[in-house]
């Protein structure tokens, strides 16, 4: 081993400015979350699948030579072939186009329900949590009462009163769907408004609006996005389920749920009529949920390494 003598050591100059240097590149919260999401392979595969799904749902019905409502009684219940990739149904309609048309409806319902949940839930929960006290108490009890009404009952009631269709389904889903979001946002507000940086903003003279939109909402965005990413698949599933039990969109409009419903009696002889919608429902649900999990892991600082 080499002997270390005094000559081996040299004083280094101490530069205070050097001590202040930060070598890591500056990353905003979202850039950091995106970096972590990119490392999550499962979430990235799900994301690519979902993007492909959205693109296909938009363009396939536009470009295909088949449409979702033209019947062809001579060519009904055909096996998947070059002409009809996913076969045809009992009225000779092309299942492939109907699947993508159904995807449009499913995504429409999913995103619309999520958007309405977002707006209503954030405002409602934000007000309850921010003002607290009696206002909070009254608002959250009202939400609890609404939440206690059996959901299927509400849906059936609504579908009796209104025309069955996409609008009614969205209304039915959002009537109680926003409560989960409101609870999350309220919890965040209650926790965050105690933070010292809120107090600091107050001592600088910030008003309620500034505190709410500059400090509280940006800091609750993580949990809001996570809740949102899990609201979309649950709305899609609810639409499929309602359509499957006959409470959804009416013919000739296609939805994955109605297609599965129509395919069920023919399961033994024409399995593709049930299989394709069922596979699309399952895989889409799985992708949304895995992607949502990925987002949760990416924005949760407790999992930061």
């Amino acid at each position: 081993m080499q002997q270390l003598t005094k000559e081996h050591f040299q004083p280094i100059s101490v530069d205070l400015r050097q001590a202040e240097q930060i070598s890591r590149p500056s990353l905003s919260f979202w850039a950091d979350a995106w970096r972590r999401l990119k490392q999550n392979k499962v979430a990235m595969v799900s994301m690519i699948f979902l993007i492909a799904l959205i693109v296909c749902a938009i363009f396939v019905p536009m470009m295909s030579s088949n449409d979702y409502f033209t019947t062809d009684l001579a060519g009904k219940n055909k096996k998947p072939s070059a002409e009809h990739w996913f076969g045809t149904d009992d009225l000779g309609r092309d299942v492939f186009v109907r699947i993508w048309y159904g995807a449009r409806i499913s995504l429409e319902v999913g995103f619309a329900a999520a958007a309405i949940d977002l707006v209503v839930g954030v405002i409602y929960g934000g007000i309850a949590g921010f003002y607290g006290g009696k206002i909070d108490e009254a608002m959250m009890r009202f939400a609890d009462i609404l939440f206690a009404i059996p959901y299927l009952l509400v849906v059936i009631l609504l579908l009796v009163v209104f025309e069955p269709g996409v609008g009614t389904i969205i209304l039915a889903l959002t009537l109680t769907g926003w409560i989960g979001m409101a609870r999350i946002v309220r919890g965040q507000m209650l926790q965050l408004k105690q933070q010292e940086y809120v107090l600091a903003a107050r001592s600088l003279g910030a008003d309620d609006m500034r505190v709410l939109f500059k400090h509280l909402v940006p800091n609750s965005l993580g949990p809001i996005i996570v809740t949102l990413s899990l609201t979309v698949p649950s709305a899609i599933f609810a639409e499929s389920f309602l359509s499957f039990i006959g409470l959804g969109v009416s013919a000739p409009v296609a939805s994955w749920g109605t297609m599965a419903n129509e395919g069920l009696p023919a399961m033994k002889y024409y399995p593709w009529r049930l299989m394709f919608p069922a596979v699309f429902i399952s895989v889409t649900m799985l992708a949304f949920n895995l992607f949502g999990d990925g987002i949760r892991d990416a924005v949760d600082p407790r999992l930061r390494k």
Partner: peptide, 29 residues
């Protein structure tokens, strides 16, 4: 009149840049 806080981790908004944190006072007034 102003205040300096106890917890240097809780007293700065994690979503704002240092410039915006200090600039907030300038914006408000």
């Amino acid at each position: 009149m102003q205040m300096i806080f106890q917890d240097p981790y809780a007293s700065l908004n994690p979503r704002m840049t240092v410039g915006d944190i200090i600039g907030e006072a300038l914006d408000i007034h």
